[in-house]
């Protein structure tokens, strides 16, 4: 029983948060429409957090995801402005994301720079590039094709007034792919082995450098996907618009890690972390709670969840 609490403390916390809002906002919180809203609101953060989980499995970080998301949005918008089709813009943005991620991977795996330092450097580089190529301006209006901005507003109709948002579907697909890669392939098992002990993994014949290189590539690709989703949702691209994603994504993975006996990140647990952040944002807004109080609460809950989990582990 006690060990169940140890593992599921964060999950229980999440359920309590949901029940609390259900009681406080009885009419509108626990409705299909609101939950579909929440799923759409967290979809961009979710994609970044899911792919961030891949590098955090190895005990690494990718701090550049926020600026990569901004850069990807700008790249796509500039392609649209120059008259290229939606798919060209999307493909270019994803290529930039993958290339930027692999550059992070090369710096970490082959040059041997600490991930924190390497991705802090590329965070600044990608952000600078986003400003450079856009001239610091927001690209919006007629430059953004309606098929692109319409994607974020589209969905599969479920009932008269509700539909499953396209952005939610994208996030769900990314979740399935990342879950499969991490939990069902040797690639994923090897990443966990690297996270457990890099030296032992290397001695066991795992090509640590190559795997770290590739994992960062996936993180960059995820960041670019989220950047495109963001640009579609706001029907514009701005060189700073993704910057809030990075810290929230890391927070979501940390929240998820508290649910693991070994303190390992798992993508399903990351989903719970993402939902905690999203539900708090949604519920507290509906309760008309001051936005700065919301920030304090979210931060406190992250610290509390991680602290209680480490207290549990230290005593255990």
């Amino acid at each position: 029983m006690a060990s169940a609490f140890k593992t599921y403390g964060t999950l229980i916390g999440f359920v309590l948060v949901v029940v609390f809002f259900w009681i406080e906002i009885p009419d509108t919180f626990m409705t299909a429409k609101n939950w579909l809203n929440i799923s759409q609101q967290v979809s961009m953060l979710a994609v970044v957090a899911f792919t961030m989980t891949i590098v955090m499995v190895m005990g690494d970080f990718d701090l550049s995801v926020g600026s990569m998301a901004s850069l990807a949005g700008i790249v796509a918008a500039l392609a649209f402005r120059d008259g290229h089709g939606v798919w060209v813009g999307v493909a270019l943005a994803l290529i930039v994301g993958l290339a930027g991620g692999l550059l992070n991977g090369a710096l970490v795996a082959y040059v041997g720079i600490l991930p924190f330092v390497a991705t802090l450097g590329t965070l600044t580089v990608y952000s600078g590039l986003a400003f450079l190529v856009s001239g610091g301006k927001t690209i919006f209006g007629r430059d953004i094709p309606t098929t692109f901005s319409g994607f974020a507003r589209s969905g599969i109709p479920l009932a008269e007034t509700i539909s499953l948002p396209s952005l939610t579907i994208v996030a769900a697909l990314v979740l399935m792919v990342v879950w499969f890669v991490l939990e069902q392939t040797t690639f994923g098992r090897r990443l966990y082995a690297i996270g457990g002990n890099k030296e032992a993994a290397r001695l066991a014949g795992i090509r640590v450098r190559r795997l770290r290189f590739l994992a960062f590539g996936l993180s960059g690709l995820g960041a670019a996907t989220a950047g495109l989703m963001y640009a579609s949702r706001v029907a514009s691209a701005n060189p700073t618009q993704g910057s809030g994603l990075m810290l929230d994504a890391i927070a979501a993975v940390f929240l998820g890690m508290t649910m693991s006996e070994e303190g390992e990140p798992h993508v399903a647990a990351t989903l719970v972390g993402v939902l905690i952040l999203g539900v708090l944002g949604n519920g507290l807004t509906q309760m008309s709670i001051d936005s700065y109080v919301r920030e304090v609460l979210i931060g406190s809950i992250i610290v509390l969840a991680v602290a209680t989990s480490s207290i549990g582990k230290a005593r255990g």
Binding site: M1, A2, F5, K6, G9, I12, G13, L16, V17, I301, L304, A305, A307, T308, S309, I311, G312, R315, G316
Partner: peptide, 9 residues
Amino acid sequence: TASLRTRLP
């Protein structure tokens, strides 16, 4: 520890 973990949230 279990009760602490649920009490804080």
